[in-house]
Design a protein around this nucleic acid. Structure first.
Lengths: 209, 209
DNA sequence: ATCTTAAGCTGACGATCGTTCTCTAAAGAC
DNA sequence: GTCTTTAGAGAACGATCGTCAGCTTAAGAT
């Protein structure tokens, strides 16, 4: 019983790479992306450390691959699910509600991975922080564009402070994340949805000036 | 050049302990409380690893001491600065504005340490998470009590959803923290203050139902 | 002046970190 | 068929992790 099973084939190799990233997403959401360990990852996957790192070359490259995968999943899930809705308030509301559902998750996965990693790297310069900033900037642009659409369509007052509203919507998402993960508040999703609707619904009497 | 300088005296020892915690607060706000390292801490302080850990016994005990110190500073700074204000909206507004100023910080220290650590440990059970949960619960009770006072005094509508408002106020603080540390948005403090006032000022037309 | 206490250094410990060799055997090209 | 490529295992590397056993030396008590 000397060698184990050096299977490969280019298609199985890609599957292994996906398995590694998948597991890294799970482990990283508990101990953070920096708390990720090649050894722990290898043990969990029943692989050797070399087998794991061989797919990426470097731990930082693996971390970047994990971030990229998380960004792509977020995009497919959140703006992707809102694609069918009418531009403006309807689409934006659906996107945020989908985000909240995504954070609510199931019994084996809760919270938004990107939101956690964003806080983890907010003071750590480097390519990982850069990747997160790029993703966040794209999301912010998305929200801003939909809000502008809503203002143009008369769904929001013409004097709406769009950047301010973007800022506050982001705060709601952060509050939902903290309520789900830290305080484990079962009303987190409901509170989040209520806050979103209060900010976006046209009954919003913004000031009346 | 054999021994260096084994100074002590009970008063100097306490000062050293304070120096260690002080430095740990700085290092921990960059690499996280878990990314803290006895060796790095010792090098930065010009001490030996044993000299550092000797004051606490364990890394986890040191981390707990750092959290306790951060909690005490937050309390002295934020609710402490609002003590002179009239209970209700005035006191709560001053507390949140002070929190925002605290997060804005100066050129050598930005962001709220406790907020960062809260996100870091939101999925890591243990005494550190427990300490953070206790502190957060106390803060939440403080906000809730002031809001109830405001409702009783007629500063807020009698049908105000106090837990919902507490939730949204917390979201504003999280958004300010992210805007300051991650996106380095210079308008973060202004946006935060505006959001706080919109939620708390009596011109708030809550819905009219 | 003597004794006890304790702050802090030196040095080492086992463990684990990320990385890099070497080696294997199967997959795909020819 | 042979030949090249490569996924992955195995084992070791230097570095660093947290911790602890001694030692030194000054402070505080008697």
């Amino acid at each position: 019983m000397s060698g184990m099973s050096p299977r490969k084939s280019v298609v199985e190799a890609a599957a292994t790479r996906t398995r590694i990233i998948e597991r890294a997403l799970t482990l990283g959401s508990v101990d953070g992306l920096e708390g990720l360990t090649i050894g722990h990852l290898a043990t969990d996957l029943g692989m050797s450390k070399a087998g794991v790192i061989g797919h990426f070359g470097t731990k930082e490259a693996l971390q970047l691959a994990v971030v990229d995968e998380a960004v792509e999943r977020f995009r497919l899930r959140v703006p992707g699910h809102a694609l069918g809705a009418r531009p403006g308030i309807e689409r934006l509301t659906r996107a945020f509600e989908e985000w909240i559902d995504y954070m609510t998750g199931d019994e084996e996965h809760r919270g938004c991975f990107l939101t956690s990693v964003a806080m983890e790297y907010d003071e750590r310069p480097g390519p990982i922080r850069d990747a997160i900033l790029t993703a966040l900037s794209r999301w912010s642009d998305y929200v801003t564009a939909e809000l502008n659409e809503a203002v143009k369509a008369g769904e929001l007052p013409h004097n709406t402070d769009v950047p301010q509203l973007t800022f506050e919507l982001g705060g709601i998402a952060l509050a939902v994340q903290q309520a789900i993960l830290l305080t484990r508040d079962p009303t987190a999703a409901t509170r989040g949805r209520q806050a979103i609707h209060r900010l976006l619904d046209h009954t919003n009497t913004h000031g009346g000036d």
